[in-house]
Design a protein around this nucleic acid. Structure first.
Lengths: 298, 298
DNA sequence: CATGATATGCTCATTTCGAGCATAAGGATG
DNA sequence: CATCCTTATGCTCGAAATGAGCATATCATG
């Protein structure tokens, strides 16, 4: 409509995810303390193109499927005017290239220990005292905690990862909150931090991915070309942070008609497993979504 | 990370939705041909604050709940460098203020006639020939159409509004496609257009809202303080574009424990209906989400 | 007071979901 | 080769959720 906007800077931030050894990993810089990020340059054809270029130059890792997460502005942090950050989620099937110096893949549960509920885990119990102290007598806080952490009969919902992080932030139970000047309420929650608000962005990515998995376990971007059902199950379990019932998972997959047999089998200990691939129609389907055609340039 | 980004402009675009008379309406400018939009200015504390300010000045309508939709860049349309558009969805309970000159509320189905399936409607059948012509012999196109429009046994999914619009765009069946230089494949689909890509943004808003409704019919932002179950049902039907079974809807609502009785009744023709309100815990819950706390400004 | 309209309660068949039992088929080991 | 361990795969069964419809309650109105 109008063209009189004040000039600003735009920054692109990427959450690049891959699953290996039943562990979801995220691509990081500086030995696991920041996400790949960089400014949008005028040479870039589109936001996505800019992101791809940036990440590849910074990490040497080429991106596959990319989708947008969230855009936020910091309120004039630098004297040069405000800057806008646009965050993206990229799914990638494995480490395809040699990584540079301080570039590395990090288990994402390193930053969110309480999100991994595949095995018994004391992260949740270590958070509880702090939460209790923050609740005080506020009933609305109590209800919110119950929803986020699955207490008082509420079931645990894996896709509330972002809500949980934001609650911990508000409660002053993560280091970022203290850094931003919020009062603390006890011992910090376990888990490593990331630069700026990158940990929040990672939480957004986890939530998004988990919500998508809940609807449809079509994460072929994270899987190799051919795989057994158990491998697919382990991948999904690792992302959603929860164990699944093997037979029911199988039934679910069959019902969705996502896969087709390759005819080959995987050998290992035990009976050989049929190898599957995603049906091509499913791959095409997603290829459309997520990458919106840019506006024409008249 | 870096501060060396090229300067750009940022534009904020709002989809403001309200439901009155069982019709979802969207706030427009220029007699229904554009969405409220305006540049982000340095005076604005945050993106949301900027949006609120903009929309209120442009339309006189104050915004309630606001959430982000999508961010996109046009590839250097204006000589002054590129600009980024950040779109938002705002839910509002009714027209609370006098609107300015060409500002008006428009039935959103005016722009998407094929999305309203509450009553028999020839919009879908008028689109079909064009789609058929575009399909040609491509099997992947056929599958995509089936998914989007619920053909070949696939059920209609109301929250695919954006996918349907994008498909029509690619098929050259909406005027925006022709404007952008894409080849046509027959008669245009019925429905009014909007400026630039505002119609795509509106489709994004519809999809988002419908997806949310599917999970949880908690749209108190769209409802008056007190309402009957049938009124709530009509609101949800109008947004999702589909009729619901009255008794089952009632059962669903009870199961969710979203509402509480006010003790009052609505009189009209027929047996008086209990009036409900949303439980305050539910309102609080959403108040948290959607508006992320801004980064601290050190 | 009959009628039309809406509200609300209840039933019933179908489907989906969660959990577990049972069998199949490989390798390793004696 | 027989046994055992391991993983794959098929099937069952009850609980819960869903879709569709019948029946009754309670108002306004002619």
């Amino acid at each position: 409509m109008s063209d009189s906007a004040d000039p600003i800077h735009a920054e692109l931030i990427a959450v690049v995810v891959a699953v290996t050894d039943a562990t979801p990993r995220v691509l990081t810089l500086l030995d696991g303390s920041a996400l790949p990020a960089g400014p949008l340059e005028s040479a870039h054809r589109s936001l996505q193109a800019g992101l791809r270029d940036r990440v590849e130059r910074q990490t040497g890792h080429p991106l596959g499927h990319v989708e947008q997460l969230y855009t936020f502005a910091d309120a004039g942090r630098s004297r040069a005017g405000r800057s806008i950050s646009i965050s993206y989620l990229a799914l990638s099937s494995e480490t395809r290239a040699r990584l540079g110096g301080q570039v590395s893949w990090q288990d994402w549960y390193r930053y969110f220990p309480w999100e991994d509920r595949r095995t018994a885990n004391d992260a949740a119990s270590r958070i509880e005292p702090g939460l209790r102290s923050w609740v005080g007598t506020e009933p609305t806080r109590r209800a919110r905690i119950a929803r986020c952490f699955g207490l008082d009969g509420t079931p645990w919902q894996e896709d509330l990862a972002l809500d949980r992080y934001e609650l911990l932030y508000e409660a002053g139970l993560v280091r970022e909150a203290a850094r931003d000047g919020r009062p603390a309420h006890g011992e910090f929650a376990p888990g490593a931090t990331l630069a700026a608000d990158h940990r929040r962005i990672l939480a957004t990515a986890i939530s998004r991915l988990r919500a998508r998995l809940r609807a449809r376990p079509a994460v072929f971007e994270l899987m190799p070309e051919r795989f057994s059902l158990l491998e697919l199950q382990h991948c999904i379990e690792s992302v959603s942070g929860q164990k699944l019932h093997k037979q029911n998972f199988r039934r679910l997959i069959e019902g969705q008609n996502l896969l087709e047999e390759t005819g080959d089998f995987a050998n290992g200990p035990g009976r050989p497993a049929k190898l599957f691939r995603f049906r091509s129609a499913i791959r095409d389907e997603r290829a459309m979504t997520g990458s919106r055609p840019p506006l024409a340039t008249p």
